[in-house]
Each structure stands twice: as C-alpha cells, then as structure tokens.
Write a protein that binds this DNA or RNA. Structure first.
Lengths: 205, 205
DNA sequence: GACTCCAGATTGGTCAGACCATTATGGTCG
DNA sequence: CGACCATAATGGTCTGACCAATCTGGAGTC
C-alpha cells in the first residue's frame, strides 16, 4: 500500500510545507523518486501534472523550479467560475448532491472553533458544489487549482467572526441550490467571494 | 526531428480527424506508440495530459476511451473567463502585445474569405488576448481548452456575414485594449461571446 | 438453449536501468 | 581577469519487463 499513485498530491504537500519557496529549485528527479518511494517514471508523471498547472517549471540540464504564484489572478478566476458552478449546481443537483452539501455544512459548523479544520471543510464544500454542477470543464479546472485555493483560504479564516459569516453565506448558497434557484445561488456565491476577496486585500499575505 | 515531444497535440489531431468519436475506444497504448513512432512512456505522457484535461479516460484492463464532450458547458466557462482576460489585457498590455494583436486582426482580415482559415486566425487572436492578460491561471486554463474551442469555432464561422461581424467585434476589443480601457474591453468581449453563443444554440452541431 | 464460472488473453499501471540532450560548473590557458 | 572547454549534473527519452484489473470465450451445468 505504500506506493499510492497520488504522487502529484504528495509533491504539492512537499512544496507547501515551506520546504520549497517559489523560485527555489526542487531536488533532482532521481532523488525525489527515492525520497517518495516511487519509480522515476511515476514521479515524472506527478511532476508533469504540476508542470501543466504552471506550478513548477523544468529546464533540461538545469533542474526543476517552483514557479512564482500570483494569488490575486487566481482569485479573480475563482470569482468568475464559482458563481457559474453554483448556478449549474442549482439547476442540475440531485438528492445525492444535496445530501453531500448538507454534510459539508455540518462539517463546517462542527469545525467553527478551529481555523485550520474550518478552512479544509470550506474547501471541500466548494468542491462539492463544483461536483454538483456536473460540468466536466469546471471540474477539471477546479481540480487544477484546488490546492492553491486551500492556502489563501486557511489564511482568511483566522478570524472567528469571518468563519461565522462564511458559514452563513454558504448556508444561503446551499438553500438556493436546494430550491433549484440558479440565479439566487449565483448571486449568493458572488457575494460570498466578494467578502472573501475584501478580507484578502485587507490583509495580504 | 522525427520524435518531437508534442505527443499530446498529435494525439488530439488524431482524435479530431474523425478517427475516434466520443465514447469510442482508442487503440492500445503499445499500438499507438509504434503508430506515432515514440516510446510507450512518451505516449503515456501525452495520454496523461489529455486525461487530466478530461478529454480521454483510461480504465485499467479495458482500454482508453474518448470522453463525451459537452460543448455547452465549455462555452459557458469561456463566457466567464474571456471577458476577464480582455480586461486584464487592457490593463497590463505592453507595446509588444499590441503589435501581436494588430497582426492577429490583419490575419483575420486576410482570411475573411476562407471559413477554415478565419477560424484558425480567430482562435489565435483570442489566445493572444489571453497571453496579454499576463495571468498565469488564465493562460494555463486556456491552454487546456484551446483545442476544444477550435472545433466549435470553425463550425460557427461558416457564414461569411458572421465572420465580418466577428472581425468588427474583435477590432473593437483590440481598440479598447489599446486604450487601456479594461471595462470597455470586458464588455466588448462579453457581447462578442453572446453573439457567438447565440449562433451556436441556433445551429447546434 | 441459457446460464455460470473460470482460465487465458488483453490492456493500462508501474518499475528498473540505460542512454541522449542540454545546461551548469569549475578548472585551464592566454 | 576573461574566454574557453572538458566534465558533471540534470531533465528527456527509450527499452523491456512485470503487476493488476478487466474482458473474452469456451467448458461445464442445468
């Protein structure tokens, strides 16, 4: 059971854990492979994924480097796509989706006291909405940027009051999805992201 | 010169050329590799890319299948992201971007009589705008869906009158970008895509 | 004839090792 | 001190093998 094919995710964890700052060079492929306990081909598979997502860049003969990341641009993309996801989710959701959304809300509520846990639950809730949108392009795009979001998110939910508001807003979004009200869901998500964005620009980094 | 690492692109061509319809199974990896004249590892690299983009799906023991494609969902994503790209391009463009945009317009004008050529030029023009946006996430996302767009696009520009209008609208967008007017560029792109979308739904497939 | 079940073949997933192409490094020479 | 070049380091590719999941077709049973 050790191998596990989530090489890309393990690599992202490795990048996130402050091990490698943007612009830094990663260890050589052969070294990383032994470090993660997989073959070099499997490792390269994971590296290729991150490379396609613009997270790292490889230069033959030189090495593999972590690319600088602009969270601002990423958030703007989110602000455009997530309201669409909410609208499609409201239009297409089935009972199973609804159940998962309720579970996500419960998870967020239970995690209210803990900023870290709450952030993770929040990310999962947003992912659930994207799933419910049943849009292949949206799912693909969000899978691509999910891990990057988790960072900006956990940093924003350090304030307990913000977490309470986020939970309220998310509850409203789910209510709109339950009611098959696409427009309301889109608007609610739009407002939610405006708030999150405001706190982001207020306290950068 | 034979190998060439654009395996993913060659695979997409192979898929596009009516060789493999959505839902169909691709040839086995070993066969495809010899057919394209690359090793199986390089081929798998390309397959992995398409798989990450949701274009194909692999099932161990069974085979690799071309995924069904919902152009509607893809177009909705475009409608959200391209206006953002236009706005950012207007805000951030430099002289070099402007030169490339003018070249794209000229290319479209020259290709007006030919639907196929015009479609290709149109795709390149949109890609140029995304480049000028200087947004890493946008560039990555559009690279992911660029080839899919090319299809819906060439089919929409069969009507000469539509091509003329598309050129006019694109000219207006570039003018807004030249004037550093982000709002105007966003609006113009939004309207342009509304028109394209209308003709799409009017004459599906 | 229809059904179940199983062995073999097919196919994607992974691994190991080697070689090639490009870049970086450090020493040598003028 | 600077230019140059052999060497090492590193990503890119190839080959062949084996593993794991799945499919296929025939034997056997009812």
């Amino acid at each position: 059971m050790p191998p596990r094919n989530h090489v890309a995710e393990r690599l992202r964890e490795l990048l996130s854990d402050e091990q490698v700052a943007p612009g830094d060079r990663l260890p050589p492929e052969r070294e990383l492979a032994t470090q993660l306990g997989v073959s070099r081909s499997s490792l390269r598979e994971g590296l290729r994924r991150l490379s396609d997502l613009g997270i790292i860049e490889s230069r033959q003969g030189s090495g593999t480097y972590r690319a600088p990341l602009d969270l601002g641009d990423l958030f703007e993309v989110r602000q455009r796509l997530e309201p669409l996801a909410a609208r499609l989710a409201a239009e297409r959701r089935d009972d199973h989706d609804l159940r998962r959304l309720d579970e996500s809300l419960a998870e967020m509520r239970a995690a209210l006291p803990d900023a870290q846990l709450f952030g993770a639950a929040d990310v999962r809730a947003h992912a659930t909405i994207v799933d419910a949108s049943a849009s292949v392009p949206l799912r693909v795009l969000f899978a691509a940027i999910a891990d990057l979001l988790s960072h900006s998110r956990t940093t924003t939910s350090t304030d307990a009051a913000l977490r309470v508001r986020a939970l309220e807003e998310m509850t409203a979004i789910v209510a709109a999805i339950r009611a098959h009200d696409g427009t309301a869901a889109e608007l609610a998500m739009h407002g939610h992201l405006e708030h999150v964005g405001a706190t982001l620009t207020a306290a950068p980094r």
